[in-house]
Simulated assay, not measured.
Amino acid sequence: MTHYNWLVTDDGQCESFGTVDNEPPAQTYRLYRFLTELEDILEREPDDAKRVQAIIPLVRKLLISAYWLQMEYKPPSKKTGWSVNFLYREHEYPITVQMVAWAPGSQSKIHNHATWGIVAMIGGEESNTFWRQAADDPKEITVVGEKMLYPGDIIGFTSNAVHRVSPVGDEPTISFNLYGVTDRSSRYKYDPDTLVADKF
């Protein structure tokens, strides 16, 4: 089965940069090696888009090889409609690794992450809607597109990409999420009706 690699840039454009058939790596690829190679990429590549495109193949290799990671999620909360299970956080290390689950019928806020991010779909189907921030005012956004994601698809975001996640169907969505260091001063959420911005 063919799976897609997607990149969403600050202007809300979502473009494919390759398709793959998931094949197990020749050798076991472990989390510690993934984190080491990830750190090497971050040190040599300052551009968000290039970082994401370099990291996504490593994410795919990790998830195929270290299958146990795909089981490390918590059921979505009945109160919030979602759950997060942190797989890796370390003081002064610029990476957050987590498993995220969304309940059917739930929906995220419209938001940016104010850092690069990668989301690998493990289970369920998910609709992502994309907005573009105004060049002169990040609090103003315009909707520009939508993309359906399926298990095996991986999508990356540059720092100011704005999106909303909506599970589709009757099953929870499960994803492996990876983020850099968030710039809290430029992270926003937007009212879904008025699109008025507020600090996240």
Rank of each mutant, 00 (worst) to 15 (best):
Q13T: 14
S65V: 06
V143N: 09
G12N: 01
T158F: 07
T28S: 14
H163K: 05
N128G: 02
H113F: 02
D136R: 10
W102Y: 15
V181E: 15
S159A: 13
S65M: 03
L42T: 06
V8L: 02
G156E: 02
D47M: 05
G152W: 08
L35D: 08
H111P: 00
K61C: 03
I154T: 15
K79G: 01
D40V: 13
M121P: 00
N177L: 02
E15M: 06
E37S: 03
D21C: 09
L58H: 10
V168R: 07
V143I: 14
K79D: 08
R164H: 11
G152S: 00
P57S: 04
E90M: 06
L149R: 07
T9N: 11
A101V: 06
G12D: 09
E72F: 04
H113K: 12
N160E: 05
F200N: 14
F176H: 12
K189M: 13
I154V: 15
S186D: 03
F130M: 15
A26H: 13
F200H: 15
S175N: 04
S77P: 00
L42R: 15
A134M: 09
M71R: 10
D137G: 05
I122Q: 06
S166F: 02
Q13S: 13
D170M: 06
F17P: 00
S127R: 15
L58N: 05
D40W: 06
K109P: 01
L31I: 11
S16H: 05
Y67M: 07
I64L: 15
V20S: 05
V59F: 13
G180I: 04
E39L: 10
L42P: 00
P151Y: 03
P94K: 08
R89Y: 07
E146T: 06
A49L: 07
G180M: 04
